[in-house]
Write a protein that binds this DNA or RNA. Structure first.
Lengths: 130, 130
DNA sequence: GTTGTTGCAAATCGTTTGCACGTCC
DNA sequence: GGACGTGCAAACGATTTGCAACAAC
């Protein structure tokens, strides 16, 4: 994968990199379709997965709904609102030593870790709950 | 939900609580079926979700494969092996203040957070990679 | 007897894949 | 021109849901 260029992939990368909203595959699809109306959802999924694998973007596995994607590949944590399902960055220092610590405890090779916070975002927290 | 007792639910709780392997819904199904061969996968899913919602067990959203369930509801972190997909506990102190810290940063209500480590477990790390 | 719970099957959601065709180097 | 990428549709795995029968209180 990623051996040849494609304008579809370029558009997908550009969309994810320029977005701050942690879009889902479907949202990327909707946005890129405005430029390439013929693009297929399969192509979006294939490229998002290949790009995440190659390290060009980050895949965010969240508890509520499908995966999200993030153009910011620097290690950081996320928060997901249980109400609106949006994902936000948590601008908090990440302790990379946790990987080594956990690796020692488990006698495992550890590549990375993720942290997800859950609750209600600023906009949703004062509204009646469904 | 959870307003009346059922022997199926009792068996599901017992299985998850007694397991240390963070079983998937399908694994719970397989185990409980030995006692109640007529139980359906839908019942297992319904009960696991209701129990997790009620706080009797914990749902683990992991990046590789479907959700797992944990009878240990005390806050702790997990590690998933990229090779065998098994999930392990990480016996590491959890800083509960992170929730307050993140809540302040985002002006959000935060209930909980999870952390997942990824890599290769002790058993898999020395074996040729596929 | 009312209401929650079950078993079953069909439906849904998010994602992946096989294939014929198109495009890049 | 050969390998990789695309569009399309079908397939897939995980999970949820509608419904009639059933069990708990």
């Amino acid at each position: 994968m990623l051996r040849k260029n494609s304008k579809q992939r370029d558009a997908i990368v550009a969309m994810v990199k320029s977005s701050k909203s942690h879009p889902s595959a479907d949202e990327v699809y909707g946005a890129v379709r405005k430029i390439y109306p013929q693009i297929s959802l399969g192509t979006v999924y294939r490229n998002l997965s290949a790009l995440a694998e190659a390290g060009g973007i980050t895949r965010i596995t969240c508890g509520l709904g499908g995966d999200r994607f993030d153009g910011n590949t620097a290690m950081h944590y996320h928060f997901q609102c249980a109400e609106c399902k949006r994902v936000f960055d948590v601008e908090m220092a990440v302790d990379e030593r946790l990987n080594k610590h956990a690796a020692a405890l488990l006698n495992a090779d550890i590549d990375n870790h993720t942290a997800m916070f859950y609750g209600r975002c600023a906009e949703c927290k004062n509204i009646r709950r469904g």
